[in-house]
Computed example of a mutant assay.
Amino acid sequence: MPRIQCPRCHRPETRCLCGLIPSLPSRTRVLVLQHPSEVNHALNTARLAALGLANAQLIVGETFEGLETLLNPPGYRACLLFPGEEAQVIQAYATDDRPWLLVVPDGTWRKARKLLHLNPVLAALPRVTLDGAPPSRYRLRKAPGPGALSTIEAITQALEVLEAPTSFQALLKPFDALIEGQIAAMGEAVYQRNHTQ
């Protein structure tokens, strides 16, 4: 018998995270473009981020209809949160008077790069990267490199820079609960054996 899912957070009803998801206002608009392979992932942090921000939108796909329009909402300037040689640290963008549209590709590094390849208008956006971010709290996946964060952590960190001194730490409450729940489900011994090396 299939487990009943919460229609909002897509977690099993017995592990619903909706009570922990805030509704945070932000001057920055966040647009998450999620690769389809991430939609049913047990640790879908992009969905939690989009639910927790009043000024956020999540769209699933590999190519996106009307992307040019999505990337140019009136009154906003768009930037892509994605590392690369031409990426500037996000702190350089924090002093701009006009609000930002922060575009965040969501998927494995390979899938995120594919989204950029399939959507040249996306790849053409100015890129920003995080500098001095705290280590990831994502204790269930091995980070591909230093400074690698989950989508929700990257969005939180970016917003804290762009909208300082406002705190967006409440966005991480459902994420922390999700991680703790996964560790509890696998059992401490299994977690210690497989994830703490």
Rank of each mutant, 00 (worst) to 15 (best):
G107F: 05
T63D: 12
A56S: 03
R110A: 13
P135Y: 06
T129N: 09
V39R: 08
E160W: 04
T151A: 06
L118A: 15
P83R: 14
I90W: 12
G84Q: 08
D106G: 02
A56Q: 01
T129G: 11
N55E: 13
T166S: 04
A87V: 15
T63A: 09
N55T: 15
F168I: 00
V103W: 14
K114Y: 09
A133D: 14
A143F: 05
L51G: 00
P105C: 04
E85P: 07
L53Q: 03
E62C: 06
S150I: 09
R110L: 10
T156W: 12
R139V: 15
A143C: 12
A54L: 10
R98Q: 10
P99V: 11
T129H: 03
Q88H: 13
V60M: 09
L67Y: 07
Y138G: 10
P135V: 02
V60A: 14
R98P: 06
D131S: 06
E86P: 08
V60N: 07
L116A: 05
A92N: 11
L130G: 07
P134V: 05
R141Q: 15
P73C: 01
G75T: 00
F168Q: 00
L101T: 01
T63R: 15
V103P: 07
P135N: 03
Q57E: 10
E86V: 14
L51W: 04
P134I: 03
S150C: 13
A123D: 04
E38M: 05
T156I: 08
C79H: 08
R110N: 15
R47K: 09
A164E: 11
L80K: 04
G132V: 08
G107I: 08
P36W: 03
D106E: 12
W109P: 05
V89C: 12
A42V: 03
N44C: 02
P36D: 07
A112F: 11
I90P: 04
P146G: 06
E160G: 12
I90M: 11
E163N: 01
A133R: 13
V39F: 06
V121G: 11
E163H: 01
V128G: 07
P74H: 02
C79T: 04
R141D: 11
A78E: 01
E160Y: 02
L53R: 01
L48P: 02
L115I: 02
R127Q: 13
H41I: 03
D96A: 08
P126W: 14
Q57I: 01
P74M: 01
A133Q: 11
A154P: 09
T151V: 06
R98G: 08
G145Q: 14
G132K: 07
F64Y: 13
L118K: 08
E86T: 15
A143Y: 05
V104F: 09
T45L: 01
G66F: 09
G107C: 14
V161N: 13
A56F: 03
Q157W: 15
F64W: 14
I59Y: 04
I155R: 04
Q57W: 01
A133C: 14
L70S: 08
E65L: 13
E160M: 10
A154E: 10
V161M: 06
P144R: 09
V128C: 11
C79N: 03
V103K: 07
S37T: 02
P83N: 12
E85K: 10
P36I: 06
A94F: 07
E65C: 07
I152H: 01
L171P: 02
A49F: 00
G75W: 01
L172F: 04
V161T: 15
A177V: 06
P105K: 11
A177I: 07
W109D: 13
V161L: 11
K114W: 05
